[in-house]
Design a protein around this nucleic acid. Sequence first.
DNA 1: GTTAGCACTCTCTGAAGGCGAGTGCTAAAA
DNA 2: TTTTAGCACTCGCCTTCAGAGAGTGCTAAC
Lengths: 342, 342
Amino acid sequence: MRLDERKRKILQAIVEDYVATAEPVGSRTVARKYNLGISPATIRNEMADLEEIGFLEQPHTSAGRIPSDFGYRYYVDEIMNKIGISQWEEAAIRRRLQARMDAIELLAHQTTEILSEVTRLASVVMGPIWVKNSFEYIRLLPVDREKVLLLVVTTMGLVEHFLMEAPAGVTAADLDHISRIINRQLKGLRPGDLTRATLDSIYDDLAAYRRVVDNIMDIVFAIMKEDQGRRVYLGGTLNILEQPEFRDVNKLKDILSLLSAEDKMWGLLAAGCEAEGLTIRIGHENKGAGINNCSIITATYQVNGEVVGTLGIIGPTRMEYARVASMVEYVSKVFSEVLSRR
Amino acid sequence: MRLDERKRKILQAIVEDYVATAEPVGSRTVARKYNLGISPATIRNEMADLEEIGFLEQPHTSAGRIPSDFGYRYYVDEIMNKIGISQWEEAAIRRRLQARMDAIELLAHQTTEILSEVTRLASVVMGPIWVKNSFEYIRLLPVDREKVLLLVVTTMGLVEHFLMEAPAGVTAADLDHISRIINRQLKGLRPGDLTRATLDSIYDDLAAYRRVVDNIMDIVFAIMKEDQGRRVYLGGTLNILEQPEFRDVNKLKDILSLLSAEDKMWGLLAAGCEAEGLTIRIGHENKGAGINNCSIITATYQVNGEVVGTLGIIGPTRMEYARVASMVEYVSKVFSEVLSRR
DNA sequence: GTTAGCACTCTCTGAAGGCGAGTGCTAAAA
DNA sequence: TTTTAGCACTCGCCTTCAGAGAGTGCTAAC
């Protein structure tokens, strides 16, 4: 199907305007916004033609036109310009995908999923606060010609392990040397304590192993950097749609914007951290947050006996407190166990 | 604040009815559904009292009552029965939290998040199909007195690693022996090929190491079991709320039920697997699925050159095809790279 | 102290009518 | 022959209004 230039231009204008506004596009709009040098009446004629061959549709007699599936298809195949994405966007995507995720992050994610599944509410896990946690030591174990296992152990007995690549020339003795130096420099450091000077000093001492050390410090740094703990994991956010109180679009917007504001969520969850165990906050008791008609049930969780965070659910004040509280409590118990055992 | 028994009963009835129905509760309803042996008129009097002390509210003059925040607070503190959760539920939670998640799962999750962030649409990653993948070998490396590193290598060059506990008595020689036996039995097996007989045979040969072998086979089994690949990862589902086409609650329900139906989603995504590279399916072109007005853009991803799955986004037919297609394509490229490099 | 009866209040629903956006057609202009 | 201006017409959206229904508060009787 071949369209003349003018029809293509009009189809393009309609598709792009509709994509941008989600409103049916009228002939006047096309004439005004896209200077094609023709009058609305002419455009109306062309639009009638485009409708006849099935590229446009009218929701009702006196509305503008919207593209049909076939119209989009033609647009995609014949009209649209394949725009590339910017270097900046590419870099952002690449960086995010290559960022290391640690085991706790994974587990937290898994936990939100379970919590929201059993409670049918939106769930939250506050990433652990590591204030009382500090660097203990790393170990490097050769696995095969190109792979080395890195273990990072902290005072709370948590172990993170990573399989990394290493140039073939690095021997077991080299690895021993590297880990000794790093351990001496970092021993006892808390998240946030890692300074530029320490890093430089390590690189000086290990100049010969630049590539391997790069890899190691990448990981150690990711584990030790301060803001890592300030994460909030969300799950089951779609469950809130099931609640009749959120039929109202405005209330929905309110709670969604709260949920996606990490700092506010952090504040709300940290409040539950004061007392060990279960906390139920009903409606206005969640002060500060711009939410009404919502309750939050949280329970603290522990790593090796120390309270390091909270997890729980958010739902309308109208909720089955007894059932949900038991669920939250139990999940926090198992979560603590699983964390402590690693 | 002390309430007499009858007021407690009435408050309880109202809270529980309102929790269940989300409708203001009238005196008639309380009298009919909760046999308290008193008439609606009496209940009305009591309700007026409860409203006066702030435990109940009236949305408007001639509606039933709903609990206030204080009412819920009293209910939670003084009335509700702390019901435990069933053993069955406990077991389910525990099982889910202790289930192993492999590295690909983690990466897939991360990828959906990135995709939906850059496109502002709901994103999907179809878990890899491992048909052309088979078991190559495991390696067991002692890490310290109680920990052993398990590496599972498959023909596509993928390596999964796990840190597991082992009884102190197991020596390096033992581990060597164990891995030799397991490797001989499993070599070349595909996902789904692992039979009961093979398992039994392994346990026979390694009866002495029952506990360690249990741990290992747990992991290997998780990696090799057939349906593992049939997973679909979702991300950014809340983004669909931003689209004006889903203001309509029914359309919203439609797409949400589609998104949560894993088998249907799998079908839709597998369709994009036929041709390597980018696939754009507009509206009705997504046949079979009960969705209208939705388009799906997917791109295949590879592990070491082999196409093993697809990832992409779902949004209204009204979408910025050019921009979104570029994003999906680029993410699939980086995802392939990251997967292949491990 | 409890209950039946009754007037009253307030929301919800559907119908009716006005408004406005946008079309299709016709006839004139280029 | 193509383009444009003019105009009547259509149809969804919004507001208004009345009737129905649910639930209350008050009063008087039990």
